[in-house]
Amino acid sequence: MDESQLRLDGNAAAGILREVFAMDVSGAQEACASCGTIGWMGAQHLYMYPLAPGAVVRCSTCGDVLMVLVRGGGRYRLALPGLRWLEMREPVQAPPET
């Protein structure tokens, strides 16, 4: 199978990322340290399979690894080799019920 057939969008890693981050990361903006492209984490290429121990996010422009998140043995290891910065949005507060 061609590797591109296994590709997902960063959006699909939103669940496992919320196990580590307090805010949603899939809707965050990022800058690739390698090519400098600014984009949305949810729009980057994701490699993550049902039985895989984690997720690999690659820049959708240059293909370099932005982030690796591995879970196992009671630990999470987060590697951020290719992110120059990550900008998360403050969540919208739910208005009081009327």
């Binding site: 199978m1 969008d9 729009a43 399979y49």
Partner: peptide, 30 residues
Amino acid sequence: TPLVEAVAEALVQLGWSPDRVKTERFGPTG
């Protein structure tokens, strides 16, 4: 995934800005 990539590529070819095309690929979900 193949459908999503083909459509996204075609839209960009038609002049759409890539950041106006949001995609969600199913991939081989198992």
